[in-house]
Design a protein around this nucleic acid. Structure first.
Length: 194
DNA sequence: TAGGCCATCTGGTCCT
DNA sequence: AGGACCAGATGGCCTA
């Protein structure tokens, strides 16, 4: 707001570089021919209008930007809702917050990968199950360039957020629950694996 | 009532 | 130039 007005103020200096005093000082109206005076008045009116126009244009631009930003955030929230939709629901059915959704999704993916890896080891024939192998060898959440803290690139490294989010989110991210649900999810989406 | 979460506004920066 | 993205500020709502 302030800057907008300050912009306008600074612009207005360009629009009105001279005060009436300056006008009368530099070249007295009495010394100017009437046509020149009228032209000057026209010019001044034109400038005044353009200042108002600039304000309106800036305001409209701001409103449009606000609208775009609102839509952008709505899209982001829609994506988060979609993510909540594919995550296992909790018995209490309390809606996950944004940060909880992201952390839970991170841990859930890790648990799924871990489950696949373990199942693959138990199967003992990695060559026969390229899907499982490729999934199991996928980098763990902590091994990429993201901020997840992890000691190594092994897919068995536990997600850092399990320990770093105290309170109810931690309970929600209980590893056993995730493992159990990961198994359920695998059975649902990859039938015939078990 | 304090604290957490959220939506919105806003200005700055980068990209096309 | 205009749009996308981002982060800070602000105010409202809800809960312990």
């Amino acid at each position: 707001m302030d800057s907008v007005y300050s912009d306008i103020d600074s612009n207005s200096c360009d629009f009105f570089p001279h005060t009436d005093d300056e006008d009368s000082r530099g070249s007295s109206p009495l010394c100017q021919p009437p046509e020149q005076l009228q032209q000057q008045k026209k010019r001044r009116r034109g400038r005044a209008r353009s200042e108002a126009t600039v304000q309106v244009v800036k305001k409209n631009r701001r409103l449009k930007a606000n609208d775009r930003e609102r839509n952008r955030m709505h899209n982001l929230n829609d994506a988060l809702d979609a993510l909540r939709g594919v995550l296992p629901a909790f018995p209490d059915e309390t809606k996950l917050t944004k940060i909880e959704t992201l952390r839970f999704a991170h841990n859930y993916i890790w648990a799924l990968s871990e489950t696949i890896r373990i199942a693959d080891l138990q199967a003992g024939k990695p060559g026969d199950t390229p899907l499982l192998v490729s999934l199991a060898e996928a980098p763990s959440p902590g091994s990429d360039a993201c901020s997840w803290s992890s000691s190594g690139s092994s897919s068995s490294s536990s997600p850092a957020y399990s320990a770093s989010s105290p309170g109810s989110p931690a309970e929600r991210e209980d590893y056993a629950y995730l493992q159990q649900d990961a198994l359920f999810g695998l059975r649902s989406f990859v039938p015939g694996i078990y």
